[in-house]
């Protein structure tokens, strides 16, 4: 397969960055997330980013329209992101699968979210196969192959001293071609490195079906007890897509409407005018999160809404682990 030496990574990135915005996982101020590439940025491909790449297509806050209100008059003015091309470099299988989950939500079922679509359509995703499982990774348990993902435009493989690269789509081939033109590619027959057995494993098969009859199960009476209802799990999750439409007022006459991340863990999330909350306590909120990931989403879109990236497990303040929930569901007795 075509390959480039790891030592030439910076040249590869420079080449790609010369064609448009290039997002790379990097460490800036001790935060590991995707940043637009700069020559002085500390690129880090050792492990997956702490913050998922979902924020590139679905930023935590974005402006959607300006509004004005003068007396009985008012107006709306659309704000759309620029439709520019970008490359996401180094996306792991878990995050690639998560992008497909996001695509299902934002691009299908009758309506397209123009904000997501505009960013997503211009993106070329260069995935990176994992040769080492992270401490909290369990993508293989969610049916993914850590080494490659067919949803990517191009796939990188860890060949030891080299990264192998294969184009999958027209957009991906362009990336390969750009690197070839720059003289960075050679042929390599080295074996693709694969991760050793995952420390964290769980059997997720049939969980969605089993949960069908478990909405009222006593399991949910216990799971919430240590949860603090913070939004860490949902904000780090590469598939959690809930958002709020809120606003920032500039003055009493004008302001901007914003679309910003929201979390089913928060009390305001489902609170209705008049004060009724269909999911009033921690129990209902915790149940909603896991049911959404493991039953509702599969029922609607035919895939789990958990890709085994392990970010929620790594950062949950109380170690409420989705793998443990899956195990408990598997072991639970269901009447009838």
């Amino acid at each position: 397969m075509k390959a480039f030496p790891k030592a030439k990574l910076q040249e590869v990135l420079k080449t790609l960055a010369s064609k448009g915005t290039l997002y790379v996982p990097a460490l800036v101020d001790e935060t590991h997330r995707y940043y637009p590439y700069r020559a002085d940025i500390q690129v880090s491909l050792e492990q997956n980013s702490a913050i998922s790449p979902k924020e590139i297509f679905f930023p935590s806050t974005e402006k959607i329209y300006n509004f004005t209100a003068y007396g009985i008059d008012g107006d709306y003015e659309e704000i759309l992101p620029d439709r520019t091309a970008c490359v996401l470099f180094g996306v792991r299988s878990c995050d690639m699968q998560a992008i497909l989950c996001m695509d299902d939500v934002f691009l299908t079922r009758g309506y397209i979210d123009e904000y997501y679509a505009t960013r997503r359509e211009g993106a070329t995703i260069v995935a990176l196969g994992c040769s080492k499982a992270g401490a909290d990774c369990f993508c293989s348990s969610m049916g993914l192959n850590p080494v490659e993902h067919e949803g990517a435009d191009a796939q990188l493989y860890d060949l030891g001293d080299y990264y192998g690269i294969q184009g999958r789509t027209e957009k991906g081939e362009k990336v390969v071609e750009a690197l070839a033109v720059a003289g960075l590619l050679s042929e390599s027959s080295a074996e693709v490195l694969v991760p050793e057995e995952f420390v964290l494993q769980v059997d997720s098969e049939g969980i969605a079906e089993k949960l069908q009859a478990m909405f009222e199960h006593s399991l949910w009476d216990q799971l919430w007890r240590k949860c603090i209802n913070c939004g860490t799990c949902t904000y780090l999750c590469p598939t959690c897509h809930c958002f709020d439409i809120s606003e920032k007022k500039k003055n009493q006459h004008c302001g901007v409407k914003i679309k910003c991340w929201d979390s089913c863990m928060f009390n305001e999330y489902a609170m209705m005018a008049g004060g009724h909350n269909p999911r009033p306590s921690k129990k209902e909120k915790v149940r909603q999160r896991f049911m959404h990931k493991l039953r509702y989403f599969p029922e609607r879109y035919g895939k789990y809404q958990c890709t085994g990236c392990g970010r929620c497990i790594a950062k949950c303040p109380v170690n409420l682990e989705i793998t443990d929930v899956i195990n408990q569901v598997r072991e639970a007795k269901v009447n009838g």
Binding site: D29, T31, S60, I228, C230, T232, P317
Partner: peptide
């Protein structure tokens, strides 16, 4: 500024 730029507003600090 750098520190607060990183904040995700998950409210874990508050809730714990």
């Amino acid at each position: 500024q750098k520190q607060h730029e990183k904040c995700l507003r998950c409210y874990a600090c508050r809730n714990i």
